[in-house]
């Protein structure tokens, strides 16, 4: 029998081998040995990512029945449906780590698992649907493109698929904004107002500055994360400012200016007090979003129970079906 000492040195050897493999750029499959901290980090990150897709359906769903044209409704519905699908890809990938969807949903409901803070802001006007698609999805894509090469293979595979499908999402939002900026004075005002409200929360989506990022070290060593928060945020700002200018929107940041020397934009300080406050639960929609999810889950219980009951009664029959 292994002594504790033997077990420890065995684990150390496995860890060394694991790190060597990840350093060499090889990916990790579900049945491969992995350190517990790696698994935990992934479960946390992937379930948060999945929950974000699902909770993110709410602010957009808020406008589905009020979309101003058949085309607009169709595109918006298709986009929200994709988000549900992406939530599923991610739940499915996270389940390979030995956590069930049921547990992930329980953790969401108890507050143990988080979702992206951005969805704690309200979608107040139709222009918000434009701003969400353009800015929020735009920010998400920058992050997700980077995650396509993450070390955990099921996560990476899900991200590749998600990035491919999301390519139209940002265009959907930008098109709405562009159309409104070409429109009436009221429409332009609505679009700029949405820009003003969504710009800063979108920048917060990349998380704290690198100097204040709590989970980063392990995530980089294990190649879960491949670019820093600030790198990704900068990338987003640099590509988005030009898009805003083209359609005549003003970025609500007086400190924003092109830095010739660095070849990128300098931008003003993000309100981290607001960021931390909303994360702690005191945002405009935290309560509403979670209560919505819990209500739908609870109201759907009898349907899932019925499906289970039917299966149990008819198991034999359904086997004979083929």
């Amino acid at each position: 029998m292994d002594s504790i000492q033997d077990k420890l040195s065995k684990d150390e050897a496995l860890l060394a081998k694991f790190e060597e493999k990840v350093q060499a750029g090889e990916s990790v499959e579900p049945r491969d040995w992995m350190p517990e901290a790696y698994r935990k980090h992934l479960v946390r990150q992937m379930s948060q990512h999945a929950h974000s897709e699902v909770i993110g359906m709410q602010p957009e769903g808020n406008w589905v029945t009020r979309a101003p044209s058949l085309r607009a409704k169709q595109i918006l519905l298709a986009k929200i449906q994709d988000e549900g699908g992406h939530g599923l890809y991610l739940y499915s990938a996270a389940e390979t780590l030995g956590i069930s969807r049921k547990e992930m949903i329980e953790q969401l409901h108890t507050g143990k698992a988080k979702y992206s803070n951005i969805f704690n802001y309200p979608s107040l006007t139709w222009a918000d649907i434009g701003a969400i698609g353009w800015l929020v999805d735009g920010a998400a894509i920058v992050n997700q493109v980077s995650l396509q090469r993450t070390s955990y293979a099921p996560y990476s595979r899900a991200m590749v698929r998600i990035c491919k499908e999301e390519s139209f999402h940002q265009r959907q939002g930008y098109e709405i904004m562009a159309q409104m900026m070409k429109g009436t004075a009221e429409q332009r005002e609505m679009a700029q107002d949405a820009m003003n409200r969504w710009w800063w929360p979108s920048l917060m989506m990349f998380g704290p500055h690198d100097t204040d990022s709590p989970h980063s070290a392990d995530a980089f060593r294990w190649k879960i994360k491949r670019h820093t928060n600030d790198e990704l945020r900068q990338k987003f700002i640099d590509k988005t400012v030009q898009q805003a200018e083209v359609i005549g929107l003003t970025v609500p940041d007086p400190d924003l200016k092109w830095n010739e020397q660095k070849g990128c934009y300098d931008y003003g300080e993000i309100n981290w007090d607001e960021f931390n406050r909303v994360i702690r639960g005191d945002g405009p929609c935290n309560k509403q979003r979670l209560e919505h999810h819990i209500r739908v889950h609870t109201e759907g219980a009898w349907v899932r129970e019925a499906a289970e009951a039917y299966k149990n009664k008819n198991e034999q029959q359904s086997i004979n079906l083929n």
Binding site: V54, G61, T65, Q81, G84, G87, A301, V303
Partner: peptide, 14 residues
């Protein structure tokens, strides 16, 4: 479309 984000589980939402 009123069912969007209100279905008993996500597959059914889709």
């Amino acid at each position: 479309s009123e069912w969007c984000s209100n279905a008993p589980f996500i597959e059914e939402d889709l």
